[in-house]
Computed example of a mutant assay.
Amino acid sequence: MSSFSERVVVITGGTRGIGAAVAERFRRAGATVHSPGRADCDVTDESAVQAYFAQVGPVDVLVNNAGVSSSAPLAKTSVDEWRGQFEVNATGAFLCTRAVLPGMRERDFGRIVTVASTAGLAGARYTSGYTASKHAAVGLMRAVAAEVAGTGITSNAVCPAFVRTDMTAASISRIQERTGRDEAAAESALAAATPLGRLLEPDEIAFAVAFFADPAAAAINGQTLVLDGGGIQK
């Protein structure tokens, strides 16, 4: 029997990219999967988050995957861009985690996995809002881990480098616009940023999420799993 049989899993931002791959992996493992997109649950809206999770009921695994990014030098980053990334990447994870945690405490079981980024552990040029918000998401994960230590609940984060998603495609387009490179050369420039030398595939992130979520991973709490081929070693 699958370790996720009869488990209820919620993956925010679960309609495409990493979220869709995570949702499919859990479905194959026998879980009951809810994978809301923004139209189903705006993770930045406190009332919408409360209503959504009240409708879903008890949650065994929460995957905080909803995320946005933009790129600009710090001096050209608007307050709206800054706030927008924090609202989704950090506040969204906070609101969803807060919604499921009481029920997990009642049942003394739960897995909270935050899809962060290598940008949550190291800085990069032109990504001030994204990097700061992903650092905040990792910090939230660690604070939650400290609160649930010694219980049947864990809180961890996966931190991938560039993944083959629509978000990365937008980054490639920006490189093309700014440098005049063709699509292949722009993708290679991103891939060269890590020792892996290629873009990650969404299924690779799904594997890491499922690893943290497995009931057998009960001793792993407050950790970041970096997927970049060895560039960041923690």
Score class of each variant (00 low, 15 high):
residue 127 T to P: 05
residue 211 F to P: 02
residue 18 I to V: 03
residue 5 S to L: 13
residue 56 V to Y: 06
residue 98 R to A: 07
residue 183 E to W: 07
residue 89 N to S: 09
residue 205 I to F: 01
residue 132 A to L: 11
residue 162 F to T: 09
residue 87 E to C: 01
residue 24 E to I: 11
residue 113 V to E: 07
residue 99 A to R: 01
residue 168 T to Y: 00
residue 51 A to Y: 00
residue 205 I to T: 04
residue 110 G to R: 09
residue 37 G to P: 00
residue 78 S to Q: 11
residue 155 S to Q: 13
residue 66 A to D: 07
residue 74 L to F: 13
residue 232 I to H: 12
residue 144 V to Q: 02
residue 175 I to N: 00
residue 79 V to A: 13
residue 105 R to C: 09
residue 109 F to H: 11
residue 43 V to C: 07
residue 172 I to C: 03
residue 54 A to S: 15
residue 114 T to W: 03
residue 100 V to Y: 05
residue 199 L to V: 09
residue 143 A to W: 12
residue 62 L to I: 08
residue 132 A to H: 11
residue 64 N to D: 10
residue 82 W to N: 12
residue 234 K to F: 15
residue 6 E to T: 10
residue 125 R to N: 14
residue 184 A to K: 14
residue 57 G to C: 05
residue 192 A to I: 00
residue 222 G to T: 10
residue 41 C to Q: 14
residue 114 T to G: 09
residue 25 R to D: 04
residue 8 V to Q: 05
residue 61 V to C: 03
residue 164 R to N: 13
residue 223 Q to V: 11
residue 230 G to N: 09
residue 36 P to Y: 01
residue 45 D to E: 12
residue 181 R to L: 15
residue 231 G to R: 08
residue 140 L to Y: 04
residue 124 A to W: 13
residue 144 V to E: 01
residue 214 D to V: 02
residue 203 D to H: 00
residue 213 A to G: 09
residue 182 D to S: 14
residue 109 F to E: 10
residue 145 A to W: 04
residue 220 I to R: 05
residue 125 R to C: 13
residue 206 A to R: 00
residue 192 A to G: 08
residue 222 G to S: 05
residue 152 G to K: 06
residue 13 G to Y: 01
residue 26 F to C: 04
residue 175 I to K: 01
residue 185 A to P: 12
residue 28 R to H: 12
residue 193 A to V: 10
residue 184 A to N: 12
residue 145 A to D: 02
residue 94 F to D: 03
residue 183 E to L: 01
residue 103 G to M: 02
residue 178 R to P: 04
residue 139 G to M: 02
residue 41 C to Y: 13
residue 178 R to V: 04
residue 221 N to F: 04
residue 117 S to L: 08
residue 156 N to D: 12
residue 180 G to F: 03
residue 197 G to T: 10
residue 6 E to I: 10
residue 218 A to F: 07
residue 147 E to P: 06
residue 7 R to S: 02
residue 127 T to K: 13
residue 125 R to V: 14
residue 203 D to W: 06
residue 191 A to H: 08
residue 12 T to G: 08
residue 151 T to C: 02
residue 99 A to S: 00
residue 25 R to E: 05
residue 10 V to S: 10
residue 198 R to N: 02
residue 143 A to K: 11
residue 98 R to C: 01
residue 108 D to R: 10
residue 173 S to E: 15
residue 228 D to C: 13
residue 121 L to V: 12
residue 132 A to C: 15
residue 122 A to T: 15
residue 162 F to L: 12
residue 51 A to E: 11
residue 170 A to V: 11
residue 174 R to L: 03
residue 152 G to H: 00
residue 208 A to L: 10
residue 167 M to H: 07
residue 215 P to Y: 01
residue 160 P to W: 06
residue 87 E to M: 09
residue 171 S to T: 15
residue 97 T to I: 05
residue 114 T to V: 08
residue 120 G to N: 02
residue 188 S to Y: 01
residue 107 R to I: 07
residue 233 Q to N: 12
residue 232 I to Y: 10
residue 22 V to E: 14
residue 59 V to Q: 08
residue 8 V to I: 00
residue 216 A to Y: 08
residue 193 A to Y: 10
residue 51 A to V: 07
residue 207 F to C: 12
residue 94 F to S: 02
residue 191 A to V: 07
residue 188 S to A: 14
residue 76 K to E: 15
